[in-house]
Design a protein around this nucleic acid. Structure first.
Length: 475
RNA sequence: GGCGCUAUCGUCUAGGGGACUAGGACGGGGCCCUCUCAAGGCCCAAACACGGGUUCGAAUCCCGUUAGCGCUACCA
């Protein structure tokens, strides 16, 4: 059997949407699984809305996610001549006809139909125009489109995810395939290009199901066998509506900015609408490629759950070696305007288990780099209030004890020993000694173990900060 | 309005006539660990949309209802 050829065909009219990214992922997975070819085609025929900037963003997004392609990117705009030739061939073969109806006329009819509460359908009035009449109008320079003649018969196909889907030709319009400016309409351009690029499997969003019968009719009229179609379900927002700006981040770049790791994003996206079975959650790209199949794709739409994405990101975060985290965290810190004057690795190591995003890691690292920037959160404030004067006093005692540790011995074990001793001599609970330190250094009641925190912040900075806070609270 | 697609815990899903007391994961609740939190471990609550069939037997097959979504352009 011939090797499959699949394509991802985004239109550069906006950012790379998570839905588009997932479609690309599925195409890539299918190509890699079957040893086929992944073609990237930019559908830029909507000149009004397509921009180079958007194209770049889409390519960057795919690269970020690790989705590669074997051919392209091809630009649909480059094939205008072939599109036109295909349309004219259909015209010559009597499978299409010239239509002189103007946009205004059509719009008026559409509005009328809507008012009457019935669906608009083109009345095919130009379908049987006498040749002489067509020739005359052409001579007069009247603008015209080319419409495809839809047969009444049933058009059905075995969709790789939905099973058999069928439409009645009589429910479909004689749709336009070539505009009056000789540019192709989407359905023609896609079919023409997919034929030229020898695409064998079209894996795309569910929203194209209703285009499919038209495209199949086009394949047949052009004398070609249609490819296998696999329509993957949509991605919805948390309210069950189509994912849109209202739901917050919908572009892949938004998640990149929020500190989501590409591996986590890829894993999460793969599991939206596809299941490898066997209760698997965390999958390497190799495992995904091995396990991927069109049969495992869900028929129903999936809700994009950012909480689960963040959980997954946390999983990847704690599993990733610090070395690989250092660069992204450094970039994030620079963006935050934090200067970095030392090795970040121990800092990252001590906070990554408690983090769900790179951004979150960077924020914690920033505070450990310079505890004076710590801002008190609500729980920290509550603790201070609850402890009263003991807060400042305990801090003062800790500072005095810690001061006696010489710099060479400033390590977690020695620190813990010292902290325990303070608690012991004061007959206080260990927590009453440690929590004030934690709050002083981070502003928060949550952090890594206090002895590790002290070690990572360093002797000089820790002492300075603890003493300062102690003074503020009468210690 | 027409046409089409879909329907298992709140969410992502497993399941494809008997293995279902419907499994896993996120989220929620609890316990353990513990200086706090996270991680980890253990436990709990939580679903087959509804109604008819078919069958000895239905989450699973068929029909209908309902609901959601998509398309209905000289957009893609």
């Amino acid at each position: 059997m011939k090797q499959p050829r699949v394509r991802f065909a985004p239109s550069p009219t906006g950012y790379l949407h998570v839905g588009g990214a997932r479609t690309a992922l599925f195409n890539w997975l299918y190509a890699r699984h079957t040893g086929g070819t992944h073609v990237l085609r930019i559908e830029d025929t909507d000149r009004e809305r397509s921009t180079e900037e958007h194209t770049k963003v889409i390519l960057d997004g795919l690269n970020w996610l690790g989705i590669s392609w074997d051919e392209g990117p091809f630009f649909q705009g480059a094939y205008a001549a072939r599109h036109q030739a295909d349309a004219e061939r259909l015209l010559a073969e009597g499978k299409a006809y010239r239509c002189f109806c103007t946009r205004e006329e059509l719009d008026a009819q559409r509005a009328e139909a809507e008012r009457a509460g019935i669906g608009f359908r083109y009345d095919r009035r130009c379908r049987n125009l006498p040749d002489a009449e067509v020739a005359r109008r052409m001579r007069e320079g009247a603008p015209s489109t080319i419409r495809f003649i839809m047969d009444d018969a049933e058009i059905a196909w075995d969709d790789a995810v939905h099973g058999r889907i069928s439409f009645q030709g009589r429910d479909l319009d004689d749709f336009v395939i070539l505009r009056s400016d000789n540019s192709a309409i989407y359905n023609l351009a896609v079919v023409s290009d997919d034929i030229a690029m020898e695409i064998t499997h079209v894996i795309r969003g569910d929203d194209h199901i209703s285009n499919t019968p038209k495209q199949i009719a086009l394949y047949r009229a052009l004398g070609k066998e249609p490819p296998v179609f696999a329509h993957v379900p949509m991605i919805l927002g948390s309210d069950g509506k189509k994912l849109s700006k209202r739901h917050g981040a919908t572009a892949v770049g938004d998640y990149q900015d929020q500190g989501i790791l590409p591996a986590a994003m890829r894993n999460f996206l793969a599991l939206l609408g596809w299941s490898p079975g066997e209760d698997r959650e965390i999958l390497s790209p190799e495992q995904m490629v091995e396990l991927f199949s069109l049969e495992g794709i869900q028929k129903k739409p999936a809700v994009f759950d950012t909480t689960k994405l963040e959980w997954m990101n946390g999983q990847y975060l704690s599993a990733l070696p610090v070395e690989e985290l250092e660069q992204p965290v450094r970039r994030q810190l620079e963006q935050m305007g934090t200067k970095v004057d030392r090795d970040l690795r121990p800092l990252i190591d001590s906070v990554k288990a408690r983090s769900r995003t790179i951004l979150h890691v960077a924020q914690q690292v920033a505070v450990r780099l310079d505890p004076s920037r710590a801002t008190l959160d609500a729980k920290g404030e509550a603790l201070i209030k609850k402890m009263g004067p003991a807060f400042g006093r305990n801090l003062g005692l800790v500072a005095a004890a810690l001061k006696r540790i010489n710099p060479a011995e400033w390590n977690p074990d020695r620190l813990l020993e010292s902290l325990k001793k303070v608690a012991e001599t004061e007959a206080a609970k260990l927590g009453d000694v440690m929590q004030p330190v934690r709050v002083a250094l981070t502003g928060s009641t949550v952090s890594e173990p206090v002895n590790e925190l002290l070690a990572v912040v360093g002797r000089e900075q820790s002492l300075r900060r603890i003493e300062a806070v102690a003074r503020q609270h009468g210690g």
